[in-house]
């Protein structure tokens, strides 16, 4: 009993270690339970708040599970057509070069229908941040095969598993982005463990700082889970991701500014 009283006493503002960002509006995310999207959305809001960028940020949300991203975060937002977010962000950044501009896109949006916009924004070295969530599936439309679906992986349009002979190979678009002269910092991270979240947040902070220094395009892939699309519990999906997705999409920096080694 005495112990419980002590416990309640700890819950005081001066003892606060973590609470969600005040930039997140008092709404429940529309993401499914256990989806990594929520974690990325959360830390993005935290960083915008921590870096004091709320007043000068314009975000671009995609078509897909994060289409309503703008409804959760108290910053100016544009919602783009499917795959076009990098072009929309280009328009914003070219006309408002001193604003912080980012896109938030899934693998279907960025690596299939929006491949052209992605590659060319990278190649022009637009001074924007692209946050790319790769969960190997089309979540919003009900679990169809994505450009990133790994060989043998089942989806509603590859029900017997992705057959690379007929369905082609998964596209490692982040690797392509890293080869383009316009990109400045390209990394692949995840948010499936506390340590991974901390690393992703560090990478995102770095990218946001680079933008304020006009260094060019920063590209952050986040390998993530899709419990609903993969038809697993969230905890199972994390395990499956570690065992199957991460070997195909290894984590770490793909391109770092000259003279800087950001791989810990």
């Amino acid at each position: 009993m005495e112990e419980t009283c002590n416990m309640q006493e700890i819950v005081k503002p001066e003892n606060l270690v973590y609470k969600k960002s005040s930039l997140l509006l008092d709404k429940t995310f529309t993401y499914c339970p256990g989806c990594g999207h929520g974690t990325v959305t959360r830390i993005l809001a935290e960083l915008i708040e921590e870096l004091g960028l709320q007043k000068q940020t314009v975000g671009v949300s995609p078509v897909g599970c994060s289409v309503l991203l703008y409804a959760f975060m108290d910053i100016d937002f544009q919602q783009a057509a499917h795959g076009r977010a990098p072009a929309v962000a280009t328009g914003i950044k070219r006309l408002l070069p001193d604003r912080f501009v980012f896109t938030y896109q899934g693998d279907g949006d960025l690596a299939a229908i929006g491949t052209s916009e992605t590659i060319h924004a990278c190649n022009r070295g637009e001074n924007i941040l692209i946050i790319y969530i790769n969960n190997g599936i089309y979540g919003m439309t009900g679990g169809q095969m994505a450009p990133t679906t790994i060989p043998g992986m089942k989806s509603s349009t590859s029900p017997r598993g992705r057959n690379v002979q007929t369905m082609g190979y998964p596209l490692k678009i982040t690797d392509i982005a890293a080869t383009l002269p316009g990109t400045y910092y390209v990394t692949r991270q995840s948010v499936h463990t506390p340590a991974a979240v901390r690393k992703t947040k560090k990478a995102m902070r770095r990218a946001m700082e680079y933008q304020s220094l006009n260094r060019g395009l920063c590209f952050i892939e986040i390998v993530s889970n899709c419990p609903s699309g993969w038809k697993m519990t969230p905890v199972e999906s994390i395990k499956w991701m570690e065992e199957n997705m991460l070997p195909y999409y290894p984590l770490g920096d793909l391109k770092t500014p000259a003279g800087e080694n950001t791989n810990q």
Partner: peptide
């Protein structure tokens, strides 16, 4: 042209 009109979207949105 697709990228161009979406750049217009972004700029017009500002």
């Amino acid at each position: 042209e697709i990228a161009a009109i979406n750049m217009v979207y972004g700029g017009a949105g500002c």
